[in-house]
Design a protein around this nucleic acid. Structure first.
Length: 843
DNA sequence: GCTGTCTGCCC
DNA sequence: ATTCTGC
DNA sequence: GCAGAATGGGCAGACAGC
């Protein structure tokens, strides 16, 4: 019998027998001593996870295998202790770290997300497919065809492997038998092999200047590809390199499972201590007598009553552990240290070791899109906690800064309307603003960490700390400090004088600006009253160098024609504070956080360099059905939205309850409820959004779940002057599955052989369509494009090929229009000009 | 040294 | 970034 | 409402190949 099926489908799994039963039959003698789990079981588990759509079942399977990894982890720790009698009870922190790093790595591999562990591979479709062709000895064409058919490279590779006879004898035997009885004695592929290769590839990115890196990366992958024994091993090895597992479970789920496995592991140990004979037994039962459903529980004890109590206790513990882990990880976004703390210190260890800390990013709060001002107001009004029920007045007392200049509006006095330290009390009185609206700046999110350098008498390694003084993290929590060196220097100089501030973590948006000064003070900047900060679009920001090396290169060698970064002025718009002077503020409500932000950092505010996000506060009536009682709030929001996208030159507004905490992991408050942030942009709102009527002119074939359909589509505007269809963008968002089905049939009957002479684009889609329909789409901005041709020939000496659309999405079919009635190139140019005027980028 | 391709990461 | 879908 | 999946524009950076 196949031992994997034994493990995953039998009623019992005896972990004490791991060492004997856990490896391939035919390689037992070679691998018994290994401390790394076989890759096959990983692959089989993920294969099973992929083959169900049920989330609970996915979690059970993943918990199952993570439980095994925890056993491995502990067994290895025990071995290390035993083999070194003098340190039986003392494991150095280094060893501890490397141990649980392995667990972390196993978990990130299950999620197909080694980036979380700090690895960047810099390999993708091209190098993986090239390496596969070598290992499988197949042609590029064959692989491409298989990928088309399977919709995915890992599946394609597995399919080719199975059919090629490379690994199995094929023929009439089943797949499992095919690998199971294999004669050749090869090394069992282990998790460690995968980890070694990944770490090796990661290291190759460091050795810059070395020739032939691509080749060596391909060779490293081939090491794995050429020793697989089972198609699923190849399948998931490829998926890992692709960074896309498509199992229906990503890191979020894997972490839930890790927390669950930790609890089960702990219970199992307790049980084992009670009955030493059968140590480490976990029972997997199939209560529904349904082959697809598994439950974990500790081996049954004496009485049923006990057992039932125990079971519900475990269940509770699991839920608690999952919630705790999630919220801890949210404020201490360093998976390695969270897992180490959990595995070695349990829940207590996790909580004590992984608090908010300067230098470790906090998971940023994100905003859910909202479609109208009414929707927003209703949303927050509906969700006002009962402690605010006392607020009944409909009169509005805020927004008083609205008509004043930006700079005056940003003073502490105007902003700090209320600060209720004890919000759990039912002490809300009339006219307390519940909602705040902030400008949504079109820049780059940044979490700014600051730790004051200790003075010389404090001792310590100052030189090193100097480097870590200020850190910038991106929205995805990458360290982007080097990109913002100029801002770091500016902040350092400003903060040096602010001795009372020792540390903070800010939430902010960095925006490219043009500083207009009517009066300068010793070159440092502007006097507040006369200064104006003109916001520039995101594209300006995005042209900045990202590495110090590149910036130095540019400076020294002057080999680029691009503007030097010194020409790009940046402004920080701070809108939240997460940590201040040794204290985490994630449990503080926004109204208090904002007060602290203003108090602490007003001294460094300088227009065009460091500002607070523009905002207004709004009073809300608690109501569930009557919008009229909040009509004032609606009017205010409407005018503020208009202001933000007009004179404010922003994307729209952000909306936040002033009484919400900085926590995304309170599941109830994630994006809904009172605590969630919302965003309102012009292009979300039907009544004010521009829409564009375009003609589908081509498409590619979709990947993964869209494999049977055209996706994305290539869309074009019409230029009556030339009769051309000029591409505007690709589009893959906004289509329902039904629409995909319908249009896949529709357009497969309207394919044309080659690119039509009336089509103008730099794109080269797999399929060209006869332009015959009009679709309404929507997007955020128009940009000058290197690939799309919309408006071409009507531009006034601009760089690029034409104009394209940012964030395109399908809205609806316009069956009332013919292709010649589509939006014209000239109209696109007009839209572009009016937008550019708003954004101050035209000459 | 230039150009095209690939990758990752901003939005 | 946006959006749709199954749970 | 969450979690997952598929994929948008467009840039810098790193290579490879000429």
């Amino acid at each position: 019998m196949d031992i994997t099926s034994n493990y995953f489908t039998s009623k019992q799994f005896n972990a004490s027998k791991l060492s004997q039963s856990y490896y391939y039959h035919h390689t037992t003698s070679q691998t018994t001593s290994s401390s790394s789990p076989p890759f096959l079981h990983f692959a089989i588990a993920l294969s099973q996870v992929t083959s169900t759509t049920k989330r609970l079942l996915k979690e059970q399977i993943l918990t199952n295998i993570l439980l095994v990894y925890l056993y491995y982890d502990r067994r290895k720790r025990n071995q290390d202790c035993c083999s070194c009698p003098t340190t039986t009870t003392v494991i150095t922190s280094l060893e501890k770290n490397s141990m649980s790093s392995t667990t972390t790595l196993h978990a990130t591999l299950l999620a197909g997300n080694v980036a979380t562990h700090g690895y960047t591979l810099n390999i993708g479709f091209a190098s993986i497919s090239s390496s596969l062709c070598t290992s499988l000895q197949c042609s590029k064409t064959l692989l491409r065809q298989k990928i088309q058919k399977k919709g995915e490279m890992g599946d394609a590779a597995a399919s080719i492997w199975s059919g090629s006879g490379v690994g199995s004898s094929g023929g009439t035997q089943s797949r499992i038998d095919g690998w199971g009885i294999q004669k050749k004695k090869r090394k069992c592929l282990e998790m460690r092999d995968m980890i070694d290769v990944i770490s090796c590839i990661n290291d190759m990115n460091q050795s810059n200047g070395d020739k032939g890196v691509e080749k060596r990366k391909k060779d490293a992958m081939s090491k794995i590809f050429s020793v697989v024994h089972h198609p699923d091993e190849l399948r998931f090895a490829v998926k890992i390199f692709c960074n896309n597992m498509r199992t229906g479970a990503t890191l979020v789920t894997v972490m839930r499972c890790l927390a669950a496995a930790h609890v089960l592991h702990k219970y199992n140990r307790i049980n084992a201590d009670m009955e030493e004979e059968e140590e480490e037994e976990v029972v997997i039962i199939n209560e529904n007598n349904n082959n697809n459903t598994y439950y974990f529980k500790v081996r049954p004890k004496k009485s049923n009553q006990n057992n039932r109590d125990c079971k519900s206790k475990i269940k509770q513990d699991i839920i608690h552990a999952q919630e705790t882990f999630r919220s801890v990880y949210a404020r201490h976004n360093d998976l390695k240290s969270c897992v180490v703390a959990l595995v070695l210190g349990g829940m207590e260890g996790l909580l004590s070791a992984c608090d908010v800390k300067v230098g470790v990013p906090v998971q940023p709060l994100l905003a859910a899109p909202s479609r109208s001002v009414e929707e927003v107001v209703l949303h927050y009004a509906e969700n006002i906690p009962s402690s605010f029920a006392a607020v009944t007045s409909s009169s509005s007392s805020c927004g008083k800064g609205d008509d004043k200049g930006d700079n005056e509006e940003n003073t502490v006095e105007n902003r700090c309307i209320t600060a209720t330290n004890n919000t759990s009390e039912n002490d809300a009185s009339d006219d307390i603003p519940l909602l705040t609206a902030e400008y949504k700046y079109d820049g780059q999110r940044a979490q700014i960490h600051y730790q004051r350098i200790p003075s010389a008498d404090d001792g310590g390694d100052d030189a090193q700390k100097e480097d870590m003084n200020i850190l910038f993290f991106s929205r995805n929590l990458d360290n982007v400090t080097v990109k913002f060196t100029a801002l770091v220097e500016w902040m350092k100089s400003r903060l040096q004088k602010l001795e009372m501030i020792r540390s903070f973590i800010l939430d902010a948006e960095i925006v490219a600006v043009k500083r207009c000064c009517h009066q300068t003070n010793n070159g440092q900047g502007c006097s507040s009253s006369n200064a104006e900060t003109i916001l520039l679009p995101f594209q300006v920001l995005s042209t900045m160098k990202r590495s110090a090396v590149a910036a130095a290169d540019e400076l020294d060698m002057k080999r680029s024609s691009r503007n030097d970064d010194d020409d790009i002025e940046l402004c920080i718009f701070a809108f939240d504070i997460i940590y201040l002077d040794g204290k985490a503020l994630v449990e503080h409500v926004l109204i208090d956080r904002r007060k602290l932000l203003y108090q602490a950092l007003s001294p460094i505010v300088q227009p065009g360099y460091f500002e607070f996000a523009n905002s207004i506060d709004i009073v809300l009536n608690p109501t569930t059905d009557d919008l009229n009682s909040n009509s004032e709030a609606i009017l205010m929001l409407e005018s503020y939205l208009t202001k933000s996208i007009g004179p404010g030159r922003c994307e729209g507004v952000m909306l936040k309850s002033l009484y919400s905490k900085y926590k995304s992991s309170d599941t109830r408050e994630k994006s809904g409820g009172f605590g969630g942030w919302r965003k309102l942009k012009k292009d979300y709102v039907d009544t004010i959004a521009d829409s564009i009527d375009v003609v589908p002119i081509g498409a590619w074939r979709g990947n993964g779940r869209k494999n049977k359909w055209f996706s994305p589509f290539l869309l074009a505007v019409y230029d009556p002057d030339s009769g051309d269809f000029q591409s505007l963008c690709r589009c893959m968002s906004g289509f329902s599955d039904d629409f995909y089905k319908e249009k896949s049939i529709f357009y497969s009957n309207r394919l044309i052989e080659t690119k039509s002479s009336v089509v103008s684009t730099n794109e080269n889609p797999t399929f060209w369509f006869d332009p015959c329909e009009v679709w309404e789409i929507r997007g955020a901005d128009l940009t000058i494009s290197p690939v799309h041709h919309a408006g071409r020939g009507q531009m006034m000496g601009s760089a690029g090929e034409g104009i394209s659309l940012r964030f395109p999405r399908f809205v609806r079919l316009r069956d009332d229009k013919a292709p010649e009635d589509a939006t014209t190139g000239r109209q696109i140019i007009e839209l572009f000009h009016s937008q550019s005027q708003r954004q101050n980028v035209m000459k």
